[in-house]
Amino acid sequence: MSPRTLFRSFAVAEVVTWSLLIAGMLLKYVARVGDWPVSIAGPIHGFVFLAYLVAGVVVAVNQRWSAGVTLAALASAVVPYASVPVERWIDRSGRLRGDWRRTATDDPRDRRPLDRLLRWMLGHLWLALGLLVVGVVVVFTVLLIVGPPVGG
């Protein structure tokens, strides 16, 4: 899976879960069917939101995006349906071209800690994926314990 495919997949997943959450809110507040639609859609969206942020950071490091592009990509998850148009803009601008940077080159940026960490992750893919999933689950669990962002 290329960086482009990974980022696009999570951008689409973010849009799908926004749709679930909005549908759940409509069922709760308009159709008045109770809290259960948001209780189901909310956590699904929250988990995908966190996973999208992680995928966005990994792709941003690999593709060497500027802080502004990275921030735009991550912030797009906060605005309903914005992740796909932002992903398309990033793709059209050529910022998703190329493969994973698995080996160091003569480029001095390859000696930066984040670039070295990325290469380690790519070299130990299953371990890195496991650690990232555990990290997302831990953050997700803590956020569930803390409660929703707005009283509810």
Rank of each mutant, 00 (worst) to 15 (best):
F140H: 09
A11Y: 04
P85W: 03
D91R: 01
S2W: 05
A73V: 02
G68N: 12
I40E: 04
L118D: 02
G98L: 09
R109C: 05
L131S: 12
D106L: 09
L129R: 14
V15W: 05
F10T: 01
L26R: 12
V137S: 13
S83Q: 00
G94M: 14
R119W: 07
D110C: 05
R102M: 04
V69H: 03
A82E: 06
R119L: 10
R97M: 12
F47N: 00
D107Y: 08
V33E: 07
L50Y: 05
P148Y: 01
L132Y: 09
R8C: 01
R119G: 06
W126M: 14
R32F: 02
P37W: 05
V59R: 00
R112L: 14
K28D: 06
G42A: 06
L118R: 01
L26Y: 13
I22K: 03
V78H: 08
G130V: 09
L27Y: 09
G94A: 14
T5Q: 14
R116K: 14
G42S: 04
F10L: 14
V61N: 02
A31T: 12
Y81S: 00
S83K: 03
V16D: 02
L117W: 12
I90A: 07
S2K: 07
V139E: 10
V146R: 15
L74D: 00
P80L: 07
P149L: 09
V58D: 02
V137E: 13
V61W: 01
F47V: 03
M25A: 11
A75V: 08
A23V: 12
V15Y: 02
V15A: 15
S39H: 14
W89M: 06
R116P: 04
L50C: 09
F47T: 04
T70W: 00
T17I: 09
G24F: 06
R88S: 08
V48N: 04
L71M: 13
L96R: 02
A13F: 08
L125P: 04
R111V: 08
T5A: 15
S9C: 10
V69S: 01
K28E: 06
A77I: 00
R109W: 09
D91N: 10
D107T: 11
G135M: 11
M121H: 13
R97A: 15
P149E: 02
V78P: 00
V48L: 01
N62S: 11
S66N: 12
T5G: 13
L71P: 05
V86N: 00
G147L: 08
V58C: 04
P3E: 01
S93R: 15
A31Y: 10
F10E: 06
R111M: 10
G151P: 10
A51K: 01
L20S: 08
P148S: 12
P37R: 04
L125K: 14
A82V: 07
G152K: 11
A13T: 07
R112F: 11
G135A: 12
V138A: 15
R64C: 05
V142D: 10
P108C: 11
P148H: 09
